[in-house]
Amino acid sequence: MSEHPLRIAVQIQPQHADYAQIRDAVLRAEEIGVDVVFNWDHFFPLSGDPDGKHFECWTMLGAWAEQTSRVEIGALVSCNSYRNPDLLADMARTVDHISDGRLILGIGAGWFEKDYDRFGYEFGTPGTRIADLAEAMPRITKRLAVGNPAPTRDIPILIGGGGEKKTLRIVAEHADIWHSFGDVETLTRKSAILDEHGAAVGRDTANLVERSVEVSRHTPAEVADGLAAAGATLFTIGVNGPDYDLTRATEWVAWRDAQR
């Protein structure tokens, strides 16, 4: 079993809603007892009306830092392509202080071509985006180390992605949390590959890197025991605007509490 405690997260998808509805959803998520509230880092909706209402990630996290008091907050995940790595690190340090040490720095290589095209970023290829992420991670950690004032804690770094040769190598080198995609079999296989990369870079990833999974379409009765047995400890439920139905998140919180 993992040394990490079981945790439940909600991803408040910042689309098809007014900000008042997003703020209400975040506060409701905190009230029902989730451990983490995530948003995402896109500029347009990923589902529904492609040109529907949408809000930016990091300005929102600054607001959440003030609007909440207990939950950890972060992006699932920030796109490495959209901000200079040193700037992203300083943004993270600032939100860390605003939140009194509740930020998780989630980051990934990026994939949504519309964001790149409409905002003038070079899309490149999966390979170039992953190489850019690998180059950015040392810059981020270096900038965090020299900020004044220093971060309130070692800000946990979450990396999302499942590429077995390159992305999992970056996870092994830099991540505190790995966000994965897929079923129990996929998690088990890729978790073993992550640990192989960990051995290659000299990190005990089996114990040092928390396993995170998305469970939006499943009840705890359907998948919780299998995923937990495979090493997952952070379970995330995505909810969409404008209503932000937290019924399934409440079920997962109850399951978490029953394990304690």
Score class of each variant (00 low, 15 high):
Leu144Tyr: 07
Met1Asp: 09
Ala224Trp: 00
Thr59Trp: 05
Tyr244Met: 02
Tyr116Pro: 08
Asp132Pro: 00
Asp115Phe: 08
Phe119Val: 10
Phe112Asp: 05
Thr94Lys: 04
Asp115Ser: 06
Arg169Ser: 13
Ile159Arg: 01
Ala75Cys: 13
Arg217Phe: 14
Asn148Ile: 12
His16Trp: 14
Glu222Asn: 00
Ala232His: 07
Arg143Ile: 01
Lys114Glu: 15
Ile159Cys: 04
Val201Ile: 15
Glu66Asn: 10
Pro138Asp: 10
Val77Asn: 03
Leu144Arg: 08
Glu135Asp: 14
Leu208Arg: 14
Ser99Val: 11
Ile155Tyr: 02
Trp252Ala: 03
Trp178Ile: 02
Ala75Leu: 07
Leu105His: 12
Glu251Val: 00
Gly241Val: 11
Met1Tyr: 09
Phe43Ser: 05
Ile104His: 08
Val36Met: 01
Pro14Glu: 04
Glu222Gly: 00
Leu168Thr: 08
Ala199Asn: 13
Gly106His: 03
Ala224Cys: 06
Arg211Ala: 03
Gly161Asp: 12
Ala89His: 09
Glu66Tyr: 13
Ile107Asp: 01
Ile193Trp: 00
Ile12Phe: 10
Val253Leu: 05
Glu66Phe: 12
Gly231Phe: 03
Gly120Lys: 11
Gly226Lys: 04
Lys165Asp: 12
Leu6Val: 14
Val253Glu: 00
Ile140Ala: 05
Thr247Pro: 01
Arg248Asp: 06
Ser212Tyr: 07
Glu210Tyr: 05
Ala228Trp: 00
Ser99His: 08
Ala232Glu: 05
Asn240Cys: 07
Val26Glu: 02
Thr141Ala: 09
Ala254Cys: 02
Thr236Cys: 12
Gly202Leu: 12
Ile177Tyr: 12
His218Gln: 14
Ala150Asp: 07
Met91Gly: 02
Pro85Phe: 04
Asp41Tyr: 07
Asp154Leu: 08
Phe55Trp: 12
Ile140Gly: 01
Gly226Leu: 05
Cys79Arg: 04
Arg93Tyr: 03
Ser81Phe: 04
Leu46Thr: 14
Gly231Pro: 04
Val239Pro: 04
Val184Arg: 13
Ser69Met: 07
Glu113Pro: 01
Ile107Pro: 02
Leu144Thr: 11
Arg203Cys: 10
Ser2Met: 13
Gly74Val: 01
Ile193Pro: 00
Arg28Tyr: 12
Glu251Ser: 09
His179Ala: 11
Gly163His: 07
Ala25Cys: 10
Gly48Thr: 10
Gly120Ala: 10
Pro126Asp: 11
Val36Tyr: 02
Ala232Gln: 06
Tyr121Lys: 08
Trp58Phe: 13
Tyr244Leu: 04
Ala221Tyr: 00
Gly62Asn: 02
Ser191Cys: 06
Ala9Val: 04
His218Val: 08
Ala20Trp: 11
Ala131Ile: 01
Ile107Cys: 06
Asp195Phe: 02
Cys57Asn: 15
Asp86Leu: 10
Arg70Asp: 11
Tyr121Ser: 03
Gly110Arg: 02
Gly241Asp: 04
Ala131Lys: 15
Thr68Ala: 08
Asp132Met: 10
Arg28His: 11
Pro50Glu: 15
Glu214Gly: 07
Arg153Phe: 02
Gly198Ile: 13
Ala25Gln: 05
Arg169Phe: 02
Tyr244Lys: 04
Gly238Ser: 14
Arg217Glu: 14
His4Pro: 08
Thr167Met: 15
Ile107Asn: 01
Arg153Ile: 06
Val184Trp: 04
Val77Pro: 01
Val71Cys: 11
Asp51Thr: 09
Arg169Thr: 03
Ala224Phe: 09
Trp64Val: 05
Ala229Leu: 07
